[in-house]
C-alpha cells in the first residue's frame, strides 16, 4: 500500500488494518500477522505497526493473548461495524458528490443499484475505486 507521508502513518495503518478485519481478509478469531511480517510486507517501521495494532486492541478489534499472540476479535458486531466504518468515508464522499450534482436520494440510490454489478465484487481494484 502507498502511504500519504503528510499524515501520521500509524493512523493510516489503523485504517488499513480495520479494513482488513472488516472485509474478512483477516478472518474473525484468526491470529494477526506478526509485527515483523507486517513491517516487511508494508515497508513500514515495526514500531509504527506496533502502535497501530495497539490502537486496534484499544478499539477491541484485536485481542492480545499473553503468550499466544494477537487475534482478530470474534465479536461479529464489531467486525460489521469495522466493515461499515471502512466504507463510510467512501459513502460520505459519494453522497457529497451526488448532492453537488443535485441528485435526490432515490436517484442516488438507484444509481448505486444500477452500478453495483459493474466490476467484480472480488476485484481488489473496486476498493480503490471507492476512494476516487
Amino acid at each position: 500500500m502507498d502511504f500519504d507521508p503528510g499524515q501520521p502513518i500509524w493512523l493510516q495503518l489503523v485504517r488499513e488494518f480495520t479494513r482488513r478485519i472488516g472485509t474478512g481478509d483477516w478472518p474473525a478469531g484468526h491470529r494477526v500477522p506478526s509485527v515483523r511480517n507486517l513491517a516487511a510486507e508494508l515497508g513500514v517501521n515495526p514500531n509504527t505497526v506496533q502502535r497501530a495494532l495497539a490502537e486496534l486492541e484499544r478499539t477491541r478489534l484485536a485481542v492480545a493473548e499473553r503468550t499466544a499472540g494477537r487475534f482478530v476479535t470474534t465479536d461479529t458486531a464489531l467486525i460489521a461495524e469495522a466493515q461499515l466504518g471502512s466504507a463510510q468515508a467512501a459513502a460520505d464522499a459519494y453522497v457529497a458528490r451526488a448532492r453537488g450534482l443535485r441528485l435526490d436520494q432515490d436517484a442516488a440510490l438507484a444509481l448505486v443499484a444500477r452500478r453495483w454489478h459493474v466490476g467484480s465484487p472480488t476485484d481488489p481494484s473496486t476498493t480503490t475505486q471507492e476512494n476516487r
Binding site: 500519504d4 507521508p5 503528510g6 499524515q7 501520521p8 502513518i9 500509524w10 493512523l11 517501521n45 509504527t48 502502535r51
Partner: peptide, 15 residues
Amino acid sequence: DADDLRARHGMSLDR
C-alpha cells in the same frame, strides 16, 4: 517521533 512531527506540522518529513 516521526508521526508526532507529521501530526504537529501537518506535513511529511520531506516537506
